[in-house]
Computed example of a mutant assay.
Amino acid sequence: MQIIRQKKALDEALAAFRSEGHRVALVPTMGALHDGHMALIEEGKLRAQRVVASIFVNPKQFGANEDLSGYPRREMKDAEMLRAAGCALLWAPAVEEMYPEGFDTNISVGGVSADLDGASRPGHFDGVATVVTKLFNQIRPDVALFGEKDFQQLAVIRRMVTDLDIGIEIVGVPTQRDVDGLALSSRNAYLDDAERLAARAMPRALGEAAAAIAAGHDVGEAIERARATLARAGFDPIDYVELRDAETLAPVDRVERPARLLAAARIGAARLIDNLAIAPAAAAE
């Protein structure tokens, strides 16, 4: 696996891939890799002959009081995981390479970014859209893969790619979970043992609420029970527990189209997010 940090060397490596007629898949990450990221790599290998992963802790998607300085960084271990998984190239630019002096462009996606994490983390999705656009332009992949755990992020990227005619296939890969149901996340490393046990309440609360909604019970009541479960477990604050249309992320109070039940809440030093799909066929008439 090549590890590349400068754009010129990246261009040369990608040109070599394409001279051999190979499709390229991109897996963008901020590092601190886990099995969820490896699932993206594996899916990329099914869709392209060469998989490129990026590791870049993007300062533009962190707010003033968020965890940029403390975000876990372990590039050597990450590189070994990627190499073992069959990744062809790791793009790991410095901040100065990604945002050189004078950089002054911002990509903003409306609609799907407006609330949920967009409200809790102002400016976050502008930072995501800007860096992902740069990665798409730098690597020019045929397909890019993103985890469904960050479902609103996936919706923002899909909207951006459609609106700007970017011409890259965007693939969402199902959330990978630990044996206790907790969604795999780099931020799980912030949890101590007691918090890790308590955090299991998030997938449990969402699962119970999703089952109730699918059975035709009142959406508002199901959501309030989920919030109460999170509060009893020690989550504070609870930013949101919401049922949304899976494509537009508009609020819904019944499942007539594919929907997502989404939640975000903080426990200890970790802000955790999760979501579950609810299909219209599963909802009671």
Score class of each variant (00 low, 15 high):
N137K: 15
P59S: 02
I41R: 09
E242T: 11
E242F: 03
M38A: 10
Q153K: 08
V161A: 11
L249D: 02
A246P: 05
I4E: 09
E195N: 13
M160T: 09
N106L: 15
G36E: 10
N65R: 14
E80L: 04
R271G: 06
Q2T: 09
L145W: 04
K77G: 03
I267N: 12
R271W: 00
E247L: 14
G63A: 03
R271D: 00
E43N: 12
E80P: 05
G268T: 06
A92T: 12
G110V: 12
Q138D: 15
I168K: 08
E256W: 09
I157T: 04
A13E: 07
Q49C: 06
P174R: 12
D245W: 04
A25Y: 02
A32R: 04
I213M: 11
G102E: 07
N106G: 10
S69C: 00
L26F: 00
I267R: 11
L116H: 12
G86P: 05
A279I: 06
R196V: 11
A198E: 10
T175D: 03
A114I: 11
P237A: 12
R47N: 13
V219L: 08
Q153H: 00
A228Y: 07
V132L: 14
I3V: 15
E43R: 15
V255R: 08
D253M: 13
D253W: 05
R244F: 02
R204C: 01
R244T: 05
L272I: 07
V255L: 08
D11C: 11
V24D: 07
R5M: 03
L197I: 15
V109A: 14
